[in-house]
Amino acid sequence: MATLDRRQIGSILAKQGILIAFALFMIVFTIANPKFISIDNVFSVVRSSAILGVMALGVTFVVISGNLDLSVGSMMSFSTIVVLDLHDKIGPLLAIPAMFAMTLCLGAFIGFLVGYLRLNSLIVTLGMLSAIHGLTLTYSGGQNMDIADKEGTWFSVFGQGSALGIPVPILIFVGLAALLGIALARTPFGRKVYAVGGNGTAATFSGIKRARTVFTCYLISAGCVATAGMMQASRSLGSQNTVGQGLELEVLAAVILGGASLLGGSGTIFKTVIGVLILGFIQNGLLLVGLQFYVQFVVTWVIIILAVWLDIAAKRGKLFSHIA
């Protein structure tokens, strides 16, 4: 067997650090509570992460293109409320495409502001977070939304159904991850996303339409949010109008944990999926070892900040940076 010198080990750690950390984490928690790795528990974690995961897939595109999307949480509330409301008014078959169209309009608006007008994405999407929240409240008249006939609708399949023994939310998450993963890694569009995020000026100098690329990333993000909203609505068949509140940060956390740079130009769908799973397993693991629910907020962010620090440290070759 070939031996590895220290430098090679360091390079592997830097490249696969997140996977190694994930493996270590799983081992430690499995020792603490063997139930952690049981099929039932794994399924339950993946299933409960699926909605967050679907949103993270879209945000991955936005982040790689060098932008942020903080509006996905309130946009998800919007999608959920709209599809529930329309379900009883025009039936699920029409409600779903109608909700998708409305959500995509929101994404197109953000994409226009960030892509074509070149406004700062942090400010635009932070503003949209609040504006869409207001829109949702106006639409629902401040009321929570419920489907009248919860037993009789096939709409519940997206959140509660299963096929071949696998829960549908997992199937949607995995299927969408595969589709978007291939789009990002293998198509001309994906290449443009990396180029625009890596160096927008150089991309422009290579004839790539920067604005259109960014715009499309926000459309993809909105499409993912609409899918997540559909899954959420289907799972509970009724919802508060704040159901997605705070999810934007969890989504961003998953994308960062996966190792995408907030400066743009790096990250993959596969890594984001790992990030989503880590986040899910952390929260689940903490519960299983008997910590209280709210501890997870602290622990999650401690782990994210550690991960980001180690990632940067691996890149610059030392833990601390000093100026000059």
Binding site: P188, R191, K192, Y194, A195, G198, N199, T201, A202, A203, F205, S206, G207, I208, G265, S266
Partner: peptide
């Protein structure tokens, strides 16, 4: 570095960037 190349991308992808479509 500012206009010609995406430094974080590999050699091949940089070279074919204007003709990705």
């Amino acid at each position: 570095k500012g206009q010609g190349l995406v430094l974080g991308m590999n050699c091949r992808d940089n070279m074919t960037l204007p003709q990705v479509d």
